[in-house]
Amino acid sequence: MKQQPDIDVVIRYLEEPGHEEHKRSLDEWLQLDAANLDIFLETKALWQGEVLPATGSYDIAHQWQLLDAQLTATSLPPVTVTVPPVQAVPTPSKGKARALGTSTWWAAAAAAIVIAAAVIIYRQPAYIAQQTAQNTDSLLLPDGTRLYLNAHTSVKYPRNFQKNSRDIFVQQGEVFVDVKHMPEKPFSVHLKNVDIEVLGTSFDVKETKQGVKVFVQSGKVKAIYRNGKNAVILTPGEEAEMLLAGTTISTRHHRNNNPIAWKTGQLTFVDAPLSEVAEILEDYYKVNIVLKGEGLADKKLLATFHKESLTEVLDILSKTLQVQAVQKDSLVEIY
C-alpha cells in the first residue's frame, strides 16, 4: 500500500478531531519526530485561517499537555489547541508527582519529546521564514527546489523535509515554484484554504484578496480546496482561480507566460483585446487602467515588451492602436 504523506495524518485529524483512528494516527506520528508538533501547530493555524505565529513562539510543554488530554480522551468533546505567548515552563515541586494512570508510557514519551522539541525550536528552529519587501527574491530549499518570491511575499518551509513528503506554507503574496523532481516524495504548497500537490514541475501560486490563482508553466499540478469539495488538475498554460468564499474553480488557458511576467520581465500579446491587455498591465505595473470610449476594449494588440517602463509601454500602445493614454499617478486613462 502506498504510504501517505505525513501531512495527510494532520489533515484527516483536523477534519474529524473526534475520530478515534485519526487520533491514534496523529498520536503515533507525533512520537516519530520532535519537530512534528511544530508542523501540527503550523498546519492547524493555516487550517483555521489564523496568522502563523513567529518561529519559536509556542509554549511546547503546554501544547503537549493539551494534546495528551485530547488524544487520550474517549468520551469528552475535542479540545482546541491554542497558541498562547511563550511562557516559562514551571519546574515541578519536589515531592509531588503527576498521576499517570494508564497513560504512563505516553506521558514518558511526551516528556522526552517536549525536551527535544524545545531544543530544536529554540536553538535551531524547525521552520525558516522568508519575507520580501518591495523587491523580488529567490531561495533554494533543502531538496533542491527553488522558490522565486514576488514583492510583499511571505513563506515558511522546514529546515529539513520529512522522509516521504515536502510541505511549504505560503502566508501571503506570490511564489513561482520550480520543483525538484522526486516522484517518491510529493511536494505540497499550503495556503489558507487551498492545497497544491505536485511531483516535479514549475508553477506560480498567488494569493489575492479574493482567493488563490495557480498557473502552470510545465508539468502538472493538482489544486484542492481544503474542505475536499472540489479540485482541479492543471497542465502547462492553464490557470485556475479558487475563491476564498466558496468552492467554485474557474480556469483559463494562456498562450504565453504573462501570469509570471513579474519573474521573467516579459509581456507578450498576440491579437489580445485591449481589455485583456489593460488587466495584465494593471497587475504588472500596479496601476488602475480605465478604458474610455466605445470599441476600445475590442482593439487588438500584437506586441512584446521586456522590462520596459510603463511610460514606454503606453507610448507604444498609443502609436500602435491609435489611442491616447494619460497617466495621473497610479491612474491611467485610455481614450
Rank of each mutant, 00 (worst) to 15 (best):
Q217G: 11
S218N: 13
S218W: 05
G219E: 05
G219I: 06
G219H: 06
K220L: 09
V221W: 03
K222G: 10
A223I: 09
I224Y: 12
Y225Q: 04
Y225H: 11
R226M: 08
R226V: 06
N227K: 07
N230S: 13
A231N: 13
A231P: 00
A231F: 09
T235I: 05
T235F: 00
G237F: 05
G237Y: 05
E238L: 08
E239I: 06
E239R: 12
E241Q: 11
E241S: 11
M242V: 02
M242C: 02
L243P: 00
L243T: 15
A245I: 11
G246F: 13
G246E: 12
T247P: 00
I249Y: 05
I249K: 06
R252V: 13
H253S: 09
H254P: 09
H254D: 09
H254I: 00
N256V: 14
N257I: 12
N258S: 09
I260K: 04
I260P: 02
A261R: 06
W262A: 03
K263V: 12
K263L: 10
K263G: 00
T264N: 10
T264I: 11
G265T: 10
G265A: 04
G265W: 04
Q266T: 15
Q266S: 09
L267A: 08
L267W: 07
T268N: 08
F269E: 02
D271M: 07
A272D: 12
A272F: 04
A272E: 14
P273A: 00
S275F: 00
S275G: 05
S275M: 07
E276M: 08
E276Y: 12
E276H: 14
V277S: 01
A278K: 02
A278G: 07
E279N: 12
E279Q: 15
I280T: 15
L281E: 03
L281M: 11
L281Y: 03
E282G: 04
E282Y: 10
D283F: 06
Y284R: 04
Y285A: 04
K286P: 12
K286T: 14
V287K: 01
N288G: 01
I289F: 03
I289Q: 00
I289N: 01
I289K: 05
V290H: 14
L291N: 03
K292N: 14
G293Q: 08
E294A: 11
E294S: 10
G295K: 14
